[in-house]
Design a protein around this nucleic acid. Structure first.
Lengths: 130, 130, 130, 130
DNA sequence: GTGGTCTAGACCACA
DNA sequence: GTGGTCTAGACCACA
């Protein structure tokens, strides 16, 4: 599931492009996997189907996915698969942001760890329920 | 120390305003504390002094700081001090982002916790060295 | 048309702010009227556009005007419209200054009246010519 | 009688210097005339006697007045006596200010003349009464 | 030293 | 075209 940031100023279609590319590069989406239909993803993200179509076209132009008429859109092998280090550094970058922010609002690193664990727990519970 | 995000599209002066406000509201900066001189913060953040001056003037207009010519700029008592819950939720928001991102690049929640701890350790070491 | 006093020690941007406020409060500028573009007024007053921009931003902050990017800056309804008495007293204050000065340089009140009439005539002629 | 402008930012002693010089240059004060005693002028203007003393010293340094111990301070012949044109232009300058201001607050030139006449009348009445 | 104002000129977002 | 932000650098008032 993608997550869009309305505040960022980055066009929605580009956010979709970037995130799908990252999911493929990281291995979260395996080559051959079918991507959600344009209309389905549009509904999920509450976007206009044209926006998703534009994203898929861009992804195809870049060779990241392959659209087959009547069949759907499929992930291709990533040109630049992410190494484990890549995948961790993507996450680390955001964690650093959280740590810096924590420092600014006088939340100790230990508390940050506690918060993170709590969030993970909550997420697991949600999944079980759903 | 503030951290600027060039990508965000938010004007630098506003980023400074927001972060100083948060530092004061959260208690990380105590009323009466002197803020860095305009030129010093400009040098640290690699910005033009005018940009910091604009930020400080906006902060003064909002009653968050008090600038005295020839003396410096000082934090005032925050109108809306953050509660502990506020302070945690600010951090949690960013941690959620990191978790979502982790899922997209197929990094497990456990790994995220490990990464976070490692980052905190590294930070502590840096401080000791410096 | 505004007139700036370089001697006064009052920052130019503040002089612009004060004069525009007075023009709006007095009814000389009607709500909805478009103010000159930042660059135009800067050229007319031989000031840097930044200085006018700063004045307009201050005016917007005070709710006196509304700036719309790409469109222009427009007068809003004054919060404290001037009464006729206000408008006269503003002028009277300056006339008193002229009378006091006249006394100091031994120019009689009658001469002051004559001077004033002459200045008005000259002004009318200028307008006709232009 | 001098008139001080607290807003102007010009030091009081300098305002006194300037106005006395103008009074002498314009002929409003004739060479040989005695200026008010330091303490008298200080009382009238609600200033510290030191401020007036400083002004008189500056005037003497410039050769505009002559202070004789035990006697008082006296006007000397002006180095640059004002011509009639000078005297009128000093007043005209202020009248132009009033006219520009009038235009800004939508007061017609005719009204300005009326206001001026009224102010002169009022002044005359005050004098008679006093 | 401190903050405040200003010029000169660039680039951006929006319409 | 419009206003908004920013750099680079100067000069000022105040302490």
């Amino acid at each position: 599931m993608l997550n869009l940031d309305e505040q960022s100023g980055v066009p929605f279609y580009l956010q979709v492009v970037q995130q799908v590319k990252r999911q493929i590069a990281s291995g979260a989406i395996v080559p051959g996997d079918q991507l959600p239909a344009v209309r389905d993803m549009a509904r999920d993200l509450v976007l206009n189907p044209n926006t998703i179509a534009k994203a898929y076209q861009e992804l195809e132009r870049e060779g990241v996915v392959e659209s087959r008429r009547g069949l759907g859109t499929f992930a291709r092998a990533p040109l630049m698969p992410m190494t484990d280090a890549d995948r961790r550094s993507v996450v680390s970058e955001l964690l650093v942001k959280a740590l810096v922010e924590a420092e600014q609002v006088a939340v100790s690193p230990e508390e940050v760890v506690t918060l993170l664990k709590k969030l993970i727990e909550e997420k697991n519970e949600q999944r079980i329920i759903v």
